Simulated assay, not measured.
Amino acid sequence: MDAYVALEGGHVVAARGRAPGTSRGELVFTTAYTGYEESLTDPSYEEQVLTFSYPLIGNYGVREDRFESDRVHPRAVVARELTDDVAEWLADEGVPAVDHIDTRDLVTDIREGGAMKCGIAVGDDVTEEDALAELEACKAMSEHEDIGAQVSVAEPTVHEGDPDGTYADADVALVDCGAKGSIVDSLVARGADVHVLPYDATESDVAAVDPDLLFISNGPGDPANFEAAEELVDTLVGEVPIAGICLGQQVVARALGGTTEKMDFGHRGVNQPVRDLKTNRVVMTTQNHGYTVGDPGDVLDVTQINVNDDTPEGLDSDELGVITRQYHPEANPGPNDSLDFFDDVLGLTESRTTAAPADD
C-alpha cells in the first residue's frame, strides 16, 4: 500500500502503508519502547496521531489483557517498523498506520516545531493530495470542545472493590474524562467501590454516590473544555477530598484559581523524571499530556516538579484534602515507583469512612 503523511506547513512524507484509511490529528511522539498496547488504547491520545520513537513496535505481540480501554484511540499510527501483529490489529480497528519512515527526523521536527497538525492517507491508490486534504481539515486540539464525549462513559457504572482491601469502606466518584482502566483497577484493588461518572456529571450525580473521594481522571485535549468537571471541583472542594491524575490535575488547578497552558511537544513516555520537593527523591514516571499547569494559584502547593523542565508534577493542599499528579502513578506501561499515590489519596477518606454515626 502507498502512504503519505502531510505535515503542518505543507511538507509531505512518503511511507509504507500497513493499515488502510485516511485520517488526521495532532502529530505527537512517545519515547516509550515497551507498552505499545497500553499507549494505543489510552484515551488521552484521542484526536492525535501517535509516532513511536522506538524503532520496532510489536515485538511481543498483542494481548487484550494489557488494553487500557475497549479500542485504539490515536487517529493514526506512525513507526519506523510495525510488526504484522500490530498492523493487523490496527487494520481491524480501522486505524490507518504507516512505517518505513525516518521517525528520528520526524521526532526532531516535533521537538523543534512543536506538536503539529497532520493528515495521513494509506491505500492502494492514495495520493499526496489525499493526505493534504486531511491536513486541511485538521483542527487544533483546543477546538475539540466536546472531546470528553468521545472517551467517557455514557452512563454511570460501578466497579466493586476488593472486600479484603485496606479501603473496603470507601466510595470513590470517578469523573471519567477519558480514564485509563488501570486507574480504576488500582482503586478497586485497594478495596474502594469506584462509581465511574460521565465527564459532564453534575453535582446531583455526585451527591447520589455520596462519595468519600472525588477523583478527576486523565483525558485528552485542552482542560479548558472540561468545564463540568471544573465546576464540580469548585463546588465540592473542602466538602469531600479530591484527587486528580494528568488532565485531572489541570482541571483541579483551574477550578482552584490556577491556569493551564499548552506545551510545545508535551511529555509522552515512561522515563520522565519527577522530583519530590519535600524528600528530594526522584522517581521515574509514565506520562502522556500536551498541556500543563502554568500558575497553580494561591490554594495549591507545588510538591513535585519535572526534573527536565520544572513543570508542576504534583499539587497538594493538606487543608482542603487535595492531592493531584500530572503523571500516571498507575503506570501501565511504565515504572511502578509511584503506586503509593493511591494509598495516599484513599487515606484521605479515612476520616469519613470511620466517622461515628450521628446520635438520633
Rank of each mutant, 00 (worst) to 15 (best):
residue 192 A to Q: 09
residue 26 E to P: 00
residue 258 G to L: 11
residue 158 V to I: 14
residue 148 G to I: 05
residue 149 A to N: 06
residue 222 D to Y: 13
residue 174 L to T: 08
residue 19 A to V: 08
residue 36 Y to K: 00
residue 97 A to H: 05
residue 224 A to P: 04
residue 164 D to F: 06
residue 108 T to P: 00
residue 281 R to W: 05
residue 244 G to N: 08
residue 271 N to C: 02
residue 46 E to A: 14
residue 121 A to V: 04
residue 314 G to T: 05
residue 124 D to T: 12
residue 34 T to G: 01
residue 157 T to E: 14
residue 7 L to G: 01
residue 163 P to V: 06
residue 171 D to E: 15
residue 264 D to P: 00
residue 95 V to W: 05
residue 242 I to S: 10
residue 317 S to L: 06
residue 324 T to E: 07
residue 102 D to G: 03
residue 289 H to W: 12
residue 132 L to A: 13
residue 254 R to G: 11
residue 114 G to E: 05
residue 171 D to A: 15
residue 332 N to W: 11
residue 232 L to P: 13
residue 12 V to S: 05
residue 226 F to T: 07
residue 112 E to M: 12
residue 313 E to W: 01
residue 172 V to A: 07
residue 154 A to L: 12
residue 330 E to K: 02
residue 3 A to C: 06
residue 129 E to A: 15
residue 178 G to V: 08
residue 214 L to F: 06
residue 316 D to V: 13
residue 257 G to N: 11
residue 105 D to P: 00
residue 277 L to H: 00
residue 334 G to H: 04
residue 83 T to N: 02
residue 173 A to C: 09
residue 253 A to T: 11
residue 22 T to I: 14
residue 128 E to M: 05
residue 324 T to I: 02
residue 109 D to V: 10
residue 108 T to Q: 12
residue 84 D to V: 08
residue 186 S to V: 04
residue 242 I to K: 07
residue 198 P to C: 10
residue 291 Y to P: 07
residue 241 P to E: 09
residue 145 E to M: 01
residue 30 T to W: 11
residue 39 S to M: 15
residue 58 G to R: 10
residue 42 D to P: 07
residue 24 R to Y: 05
residue 63 R to Y: 14
residue 344 D to N: 11
residue 106 L to I: 09
residue 169 D to I: 02
residue 213 L to G: 11
residue 134 E to C: 08
residue 211 P to A: 05
residue 92 D to K: 04
residue 76 A to R: 00
residue 105 D to C: 01
residue 243 A to D: 06
residue 110 I to P: 02
residue 187 L to E: 03
residue 201 A to Y: 02
residue 273 P to D: 08
residue 262 K to E: 15
residue 169 D to W: 00
residue 304 Q to L: 00
residue 222 D to C: 12
residue 322 V to S: 04
residue 47 E to A: 15
residue 92 D to I: 00
residue 330 E to V: 02
residue 323 I to C: 02
residue 252 V to I: 12
residue 303 T to I: 03
residue 164 D to T: 09
residue 122 V to D: 03
residue 16 R to F: 13
residue 96 P to Q: 04
residue 58 G to S: 10
residue 240 V to M: 08
residue 35 G to C: 09
residue 148 G to M: 03
residue 306 N to H: 12
residue 44 S to T: 14
residue 86 V to W: 03
residue 93 E to V: 01
residue 206 V to W: 03
residue 144 H to Y: 15
residue 197 L to Q: 01
residue 81 E to N: 06
residue 317 S to E: 05
residue 270 V to M: 14
residue 68 E to P: 04
residue 253 A to V: 10
residue 170 A to Y: 09
residue 256 L to P: 09
residue 331 A to Q: 00
residue 52 F to V: 03
residue 354 T to V: 04
residue 330 E to Q: 13
residue 326 Q to E: 12
residue 286 T to W: 06
residue 303 T to N: 01
residue 84 D to E: 14
residue 163 P to W: 02
